[in-house]
């Protein structure tokens, strides 16, 4: 039987390391996405993924497409700086693919939407119109269940 070389274990070790290195390079080539940004350390395709989510709110410009008349009126009103969707809900719940799927009415059976902004609170800015039943004479006699919109127009709620 031939005597094994005294350096055989080095050769074997080098062989194993060489194979491991080739496996590492192969895996790296397969697993690291081509869009990987080595400077900032992220997957470039993640930007597309983050940008791909669907819109729910369209902004006032999207309302004008159908409701130009209301908008002309509203742009002169006291609530003109408000977004329609603040009270009427998101565009995506009202229109899908250009077709109306549900009404976009506000909650007209409770005072919640009005009082949510206008009920008096100590934390609100002093110049913000705040409703405090005790200090407004005309409201002292009113029933607690009475709706604000029975007297005030929600678009132009001048007192």
């Amino acid at each position: 039987m031939k005597e094994p070389s005294p350096k055989a274990h080095f050769v074997r070790l080098a062989g194993v390391l060489g194979v491991a290195f080739v496996v590492f390079l192969t895996l790296k080539a397969i697993l690291v996405p081509s869009s990987w940004d080595y400077d900032n350390w992220y997957r470039g395709d993640a930007l597309e993924l983050n940008a791909s989510y669907e819109l729910a709110y369209g902004g006032n410009d999207s309302c004008v497409a159908c409701h130009q008349d209301t908008m002309d009126e509203f742009s002169q009103a006291k609530h003109q700086q408000l977004s329609c969707e603040s009270c009427h809900g998101a565009l995506a719940d009202h229109v899908k693919d250009g077709v109306k799927i549900a009404d976009a009415h506000m909650d007209d059976e409770s005072r919640w939407q009005c009082l949510n902004c206008h009920e008096a609170r100590v934390n609100k800015p002093k110049d913000f119109p705040q409703f405090d039943k005790i200090t407004i004479n005309e409201h002292k006699e009113l029933d607690d269940e009475m709706l604000c919109i029975a007297c005030h127009s929600p678009h132009d709620p001048t007192p």
Partner: peptide, 23 residues
């Protein structure tokens, strides 16, 4: 929060900025 990246890339403002009544 992503600052509504998907909205900003389409030229819109983030949803919270859109609906804030007090700006």
């Amino acid at each position: 929060c992503t600052w509504c990246y998907h909205r900003v890339q389409k030229g819109l403002l983030p949803a919270c900025v859109t609906v804030c009544p007090q700006k």
